[in-house]
Design a protein around this nucleic acid. Structure first.
Length: 155
DNA sequence: GCCAACGTTGGC
DNA sequence: GCCAACGTTGGC
């Protein structure tokens, strides 16, 4: 089993939205970056664990855990002209983009702020720190354990 | 295939 | 709102 990090803008989808979704899973679509696409298509497997990261908001950082409920399948939004994720260059028999389904696992009692991650020497190799703009990223087991530990430190 | 122009992400 | 970093587009 592997670990990953997913970025989301909480004004769009937050950890609370993931927690309260009705049928127990939600599609994670709108990934429109080839590096991220290749990860979800080729490497992300059912039951892999996901750190959920809130970006572009007041408190940026890691807020909880989700898991993969369904492996990569064609993102239906790319075919929908009404969608913000519509891709006019995609057709049913020649498409580009994939999505996965995720389900809620846990909301951290304390957010793990980006600044703390940047300041933690054990996390200096995290993709989150080294490469700014990637919405789906691999996380090592060691990084995973450190993040989970940091989430339990009382503020 | 190069690369300039442009667009997007995302922290601050 | 600024701007650095990076991805994409398109002319040549």
């Amino acid at each position: 089993m592997n670990y990953w990090l997913l970025k989301t803008e909480p004004s769009d989808i937050s950890i609370d939205d993931i927690q309260s979704v009705e049928n127990g899973y939600m599609p994670w679509n709108g990934i429109r970056n080839y590096q991220a696409r290749n990860l979800i298509r080729d490497q992300i497997k059912k039951n892999d664990l996901l750190l959920i990261y809130h970006s572009s908001c007041k408190q940026v950082g890691i807020v909880g855990i989700a898991k993969v409920a369904r492996e990569a399948y064609p993102d239906p939004e790319q075919f929908n002209p009404e969608s913000r994720y519509f891709d006019p260059k995609s057709s049913i028999d020649n498409f580009r983009w994939f999505c996965i389904d995720i389900s809620f696992v846990e909301k951290f009692e304390n957010i793990v702020p980006l600044i703390d991650i940047k300041n933690a020497s054990s996390l200096s190799e995290m993709v989150l720190v080294k490469q700014g703009r990637l919405s789906v990223q691999p996380v090592t087991q060691n990084e995973w354990e450190n993040i989970c530990r940091m989430s339990k430190v009382l503020k």
